[in-house]
Write a protein that binds this DNA or RNA. Structure first.
Lengths: 121, 121
DNA sequence: AATTTATTTCAATTACTCTTGTATAGTTGT
DNA sequence: ACAACTATACAAGAGTAATTGAAATAAATT
């Protein structure tokens, strides 16, 4: 991942509104949410929400799909995983014993994780 | 985690300089790095780096420890884990089958993960 | 005690971001 | 084609952040 990509993502999530939007979409999963619904749920002016959604789309955080006159937005979960990998690259100078705290949880605890012996990137 | 905490973290990492600093510190692990080394490594004015470190410390992203006249900074990894949990709370409306992509990697692949059946938070 | 070194603080300029209101584009149904 | 609805684009104002240089604090050295 390029540095600019990462900073764009963080900048996107540095706004309370955009963070709310993203978490909303994460909860919705593949179902996603239509722009109007998002605005209604957050009790915000639709044009403001649209403004933020545009930025998030440009950062790749969310995807858009046209549905008639509606625009359905979905969270881009894989990108978040790439971001985490980017952040923790070469973590702890390759000394695993320092990393015991760094056991990351899946978003869905029911989905058990396989043993992780594949080096990322 | 509170929303304001999360937005502060994201805002911190939305700057290329602060992102570089954080990743540097993550690589260093418990060893950390003193302020001057960080500035030298990134080829930036020390006062500028100090400015950014202050913000990162306030956001909780890094910790400081005084060592004589040096200030040693370390990345706060557990906070990052909390943040990820916060982001993926109630992910995919509780439908694990949508979350197959969301298998998060530890920073150190050598440290195998135990099965995760504990709901986070 | 004075000096060097490490780091932070402060002030000022510049640049950018957020919000709101208004206007425009595209889609659906009659 | 027309009207209603959904969503985005644009422009202006206020507010906020980033960078730089100069000065201050504080610890170690001479």
């Amino acid at each position: 991942m390029e540095k600019q990509t990462a900073t764009q993502i963080f900048e996107s999530l540095s706004s309370g509104i955009r963070l709310d939007i993203y978490r909303f979409l994460v909860k919705r999963g593949l179902e996603g949410m239509v722009a109007g619904e998002i605005a209604a749920a957050l009790e915000l002016p639709p044009n403001n929400v649209s403004f933020h959604l545009k930025g998030m789309t440009h950062a790749g955080l969310v995807s858009v799909e046209q549905e008639g006159r509606f625009q359905r937005y979905r969270a881009n979960l894989p990108l978040m995983l790439d971001l985490i990998s980017y952040l923790t690259e070469e973590c702890c100078a390759g000394q695993p014993e320092q990393c015991t705290d760094l056991k990351l949880a899946s978003c869905c605890p029911e989905a058990l994780l396989p043993p992780m012996n594949t080096p990322q990137k």
